[in-house]
């Protein structure tokens, strides 16, 4: 696509997206380079290493730059591998939900009629329950594990994409170029792939970017409550572990992972907002 170059140019000119991108790159860099930054724990690198000889030591202690939790977990390790966990969580959930949501929304919008009615009523049911509560309920029913959190979030988050996609398609398929494509003999599937999908996917991309942040936020919340397995290197779990110590002045075990969640969500939200401003059809004509 020729517009990719233009898009990158616009993204780099916008201070919001540059700030968001900076956070994202830092955090992603951390996630990708995790095995190089810290010695991976064995046998499972996603499990926190426990140093029972250094419980709740403050930041700056030898061997534990950011201190440890009151069960001897190294905060730095949790922060770094937590980024990897978050990346795993958000990528899996976003790709699952985008695929399901776009498919459902496309069928509803492109076909219309009764299928549309049925699918959208199902979506309405999902949307009527608040995101966090719904995810909480599902995760709680399935039992505490990280995989169940992924599942719960996927179940909750796909409906937004279905909604967005359907609305976009209904709008786009009214365009005359869709009629023009029929006039040259294109099949409905061809028209969908060539004319409808490329012209309606932009808001989905924006929403996916925003959700990369939101999902980590909600995921950390679920972990914090205790719906993740204990001992996993995850920011929410870490905050939860450090929570008891806050009143005793041991702030570090909660603050550093909390800050990470904040930066992650902030980064993707800034970037997503900027992306929306750039891609918004209303502002497109001014280019």
């Amino acid at each position: 696509m020729r517009r990719v170059g233009e898009l990158i140019g616009a993204l780099l000119k916008n201070p919001t997206t540059v700030a968001g991108l900076t956070f994202i790159i830092l955090l992603l860099g951390m996630a990708i380079l995790a095995p190089l930054l810290t010695e991976p724990n064995t046998p499972d690198a996603y499990q926190m290493p426990r140093d029972w000889g250094a419980i709740a030591v403050p930041p700056g202690s030898p061997g534990h730059i950011l201190g440890t939790t009151n069960v001897g977990g190294d905060v730095l390790y949790g922060v770094i591998w937590g980024a990897r966990t978050s990346l795993r969580l958000s990528v899996i959930v976003v790709s699952l939900t985008v695929v399901v949501g776009v498919t459902v929304g496309s069928i509803a919008g492109f076909r219309g009629g009764r299928i549309d009615e049925i699918l959208m009523r199902i979506v309405d049911v999902f949307l009527s329950i608040p995101e966090l509560i719904f995810a909480l309920a599902i995760a709680a029913v399935l039992g505490p594990s990280f995989r169940n959190i992924i599942l719960a979030l996927a179940v909750v988050f796909w409906v937004k994409y279905a909604r967005i996609m359907r609305a976009q398609i209904i709008h786009v398929k009214e365009n005359e170029y869709v009629d023009a494509a029929r006039v040259i003999g294109d099949s409905p599937w061809r028209i969908y792939l060539k004319d409808v999908l490329p012209n309606s996917i932009t808001p989905v991309v924006v929403q996916a970017t925003l959700d990369m942040g939101n999902i980590v936020l909600v995921g950390a919340t679920l972990s914090f409550i205790g719906l993740s397995e204990a001992g996993i290197a995850e920011w929410g779990v870490l905050v939860s572990e450090g929570q008891a110590g806050i009143s005793a002045g041991r702030w570090w075990a909660s603050t550093f992972p909390g800050l990470m969640v904040f930066l992650w969500a902030l980064g993707f939200n800034l970037f997503g907002d900027g992306l929306r401003d750039i891609l918004d059809p209303r502002t497109e004509s001014s280019r």
């Binding site: 020729r2 365009n175 005359e176 170029y177 009629d179 023009a180 494509a181 029929r182 006039v183 040259i184 003999g185 294109d186 060539k194 004319d195 490329p198 012209n199």
Partner: peptide
């Protein structure tokens, strides 16, 4: 028959061309 034996041109060419496709792709399609 469409586009082959019977073709059609529309009122507003700005709306009848897919904005995401180059002219080459629009014509190659036929």
């Amino acid at each position: 028959i469409r586009g082959n034996r019977i073709a059609m041109i529309f009122q507003d060419p700005g709306k009848a061309l897919n904005p995401a496709l180059s002219i080459r792709d629009q014509l190659a399609e036929v």
